[in-house]
């Protein structure tokens, strides 16, 4: 089975996101040996090395829409760019990251092209036949479903960051390097005017893409109580998250909330500090690869999902842990 796959290679702050390579890796698998993988790069001032990076990892053709109207994220502009790529490539499937932008664009493209949409995919079961299974969480991970597309229509798939193996240079193999070309993109009349962006997240890794998440709950006791957690996250090159209890108490912003309401994260390492482990929080983090729980209460439910548990005061343990990590890292 060979297919033509289009990947939306998302950029953020002028850089290709890792999830773009993860989508590209999935596209290469879905396309099959004789299939074709196209990627669309949209933005203002798109770097040539981004196109080259995609080509080197298995994109046969990179379509570039470089226009001032794509500087900020106005949905109409990005939808027009994606539409131009859809019309040029006429793919069997469009793949995007299940990110703020990807999940904003995918449903509209699906509706516009009569396509089905399978969202937030964490694994793909690709056999040699026609049947492709897309695995995705329900209830934020309290259950999972396998979903397939009905035949005869294009597919739109959004893939969760951090779950699928990224495309590697080896995936391009002997494919001949690929090519890059300008997309026939004409800026549409813009309805959405972006009036300003307040960069609150700069300097902080995106939670969904972080390899390490250090998360605090009610036990952190105050906004200042997050400081030792931040220091540990910095030492590990990770991001800081929080439980609903900590957000509701005003210790931190809702943007950091992890759980069934809030974000679902699947990092390599999740460190829960002063989090009891309410069901709705567990749903948002229990698919992490390795989980550490630090809590004063030996009966806290969080210990039930933790690979390593420390019963103790996070204000004592976390700074010692940070120091130990820094010591090991420097030696």
């Amino acid at each position: 089975m060979s297919r033509t796959i289009l990947v939306f290679a998302e950029r953020r702050d002028g850089q290709l996101r890792r999830v773009a390579f993860e989508a590209l890796g999935a596209a290469r698998r879905l396309a099959g040996e004789d299939g074709a993988v196209h990627a669309v790069l949209a933005g203002s001032g798109v770097a040539a090395e981004d196109a080259a990076a995609l080509q080197a990892r298995g994109a046969d053709v990179v379509h570039i829409a470089d226009d001032p109207s794509l500087k900020d994220y106005a949905p109409e502009a990005y939808l027009a760019a994606l539409g131009a790529a859809m019309d040029a490539v006429r793919p069997d499937a469009l793949l995007l990251g299940h990110t703020g932008v990807g999940r904003d664009l995918a449903p509209r493209v699906a509706a516009a092209y009569g396509a089905g949409h399978i969202a937030d995919v964490t694994a793909i079961e690709a056999s040699s036949g026609d049947d492709i299974g897309f695995i995705r969480p329900l209830y934020a991970g309290k259950a999972f479903e396998r979903r397939s597309f009905a035949p005869g229509r294009p597919w739109v798939v959004t893939v969760r960051p951090n779950n699928l193996p990224p495309a590697e240079p080896a995936d391009a193999g002997a494919r001949g390097g690929g090519s890059a070309q300008a997309l026939a993109y004409a800026p549409p009349p813009l309805l959405t005017a972006v009036r300003g962006v307040l960069r609150r997240a700069s300097g902080q890794l995106d939670l969904a893409e972080a390899d390490v998440v250090v998360s605090g709950g009610r036990g952190v006791r105050s906004a200042a109580g997050f400081e030792p957690l931040r220091a540990l996250a910095d030492a590990l090159g990770g991001a800081v998250g929080a439980s609903r209890a900590a957000c509701d108490a005003g210790y931190c912003d809702y943007a950091l909330q992890i759980g069934q309401t809030g974000k679902v994260v699947t990092p390599q390492l999740y460190i829960a500090c002063g989090i009891s482990g309410a069901i709705q929080h567990l749903a948002g983090m229990s698919q992490s690869r390795t989980i550490i729980a630090i809590n004063k209460d030996p009966d806290a439910p969080i210990f039930g999902v933790a690979d390593y548990g420390i019963v103790g005061d996070l204000f004592e343990v976390v700074p010692l842990l940070t120091a130990e990590v820094l010591r090991v890292r420097s030696s």
């Binding site: 396998r146 548990g309 010692l320």
Partner: peptide
């Protein structure tokens, strides 16, 4: 356009090790 072909619970997670000792 899409159909569910299976529904299953998440892989179970066994509780791991408790680490003892001073902080």
């Amino acid at each position: 356009r899409t159909v569910r072909t299976a529904l299953f619970p998440p892989p179970p997670r066994a509780a791991g090790k408790r680490i003892a000792g001073s902080p």
